[in-house]
Design a protein around this nucleic acid. Structure first.
Lengths: 125, 125
DNA sequence: TTACTTGCAAACGGTTTGCATCGAG
DNA sequence: CTCGATGCAAACCGTTTGCAAGTAA
């Protein structure tokens, strides 16, 4: 656990919405940390691979990250423009996917569900 | 309406899934059309602006296009091992996502749903 | 004619990589 | 001491733009 990792974790901890690698890097610099952009990218990649971070691609092409607050399985409603996120309960989805196990003979069923849209703020611009 | 536009329309007409600008360009070249990549991008942009094309950003970062309104939205149940796919109807999902428009003030809501598992064949191996 | 489209090449912006160095364990 | 993390600079890749030449109407 390096100094840079601790610093990034801190910033991720404090932000509630999805943030881009560059935004996170800028915040680190603003706080006086000396961190390379490539390092931030590397850290974010590791975090996402390890399942500690959720990632999504914005309309602009950047990837945005957020620490996953809930441990249990859940989904997000995410603004495609600014990354603002709402956590969703999805009992319907869980039930829906369960049904496939017997119906199609599939096992170990998993699912990825991302709901995206434009939040009230971004829609007016 | 130029020759290149007619050619691209033809290719879009024939493809049922979302295709990237580069894929579409490659298909045009494969058919013997002399078209520049920049032209394909320009055409796709115009088509999307005019509402004739749906566009979405893939995980890889490319933008993929599809002619609008053909074929209703659906999802797949895909085997993680052999790639075997089953088409799914998802009325529950559609209804579920619709509810968010008013509840959270989001507009233009879209969703990505991927259901994966092991098919009967692959599970026994 | 005239405005719009074409298409090459160069620019752009986010991300990744090569590699020498650093530092945690 | 060792191996993974760091960070600069350069490479990458999809996309956009500048601009000269072409073409539909």
């Amino acid at each position: 656990m390096t100094v840079q990792q601790r610093a990034l974790n801190e910033v991720l901890e404090e932000s509630t919405d999805f943030a881009s690698a560059q935004e996170l890097h800028a915040r680190l610099i603003a706080r006086g940390h000396r961190v390379g952009l490539a390092t931030v990218y590397a850290q974010l990649r590791r975090g996402a691979d390890a399942g500690e971070l959720d990632s999504m691609r914005a309309d602009t092409g950047e990837v945005r990250f957020r620490r996953c607050g809930q441990r249990s399985h859940h989904h997000h409603l995410i603004c495609r423009t600014c990354g603002h996120a709402v956590e969703l309960d999805a009992p319907e989805i869980e039930a829906w996917t369960k049904g496939f196990e017997s119906r199609y003979g599939f096992t170990e069923i998993d699912h990825i569900v991302e709901v995206t849209g434009l939040c009230a703020n971004c829609a007016t611009e």
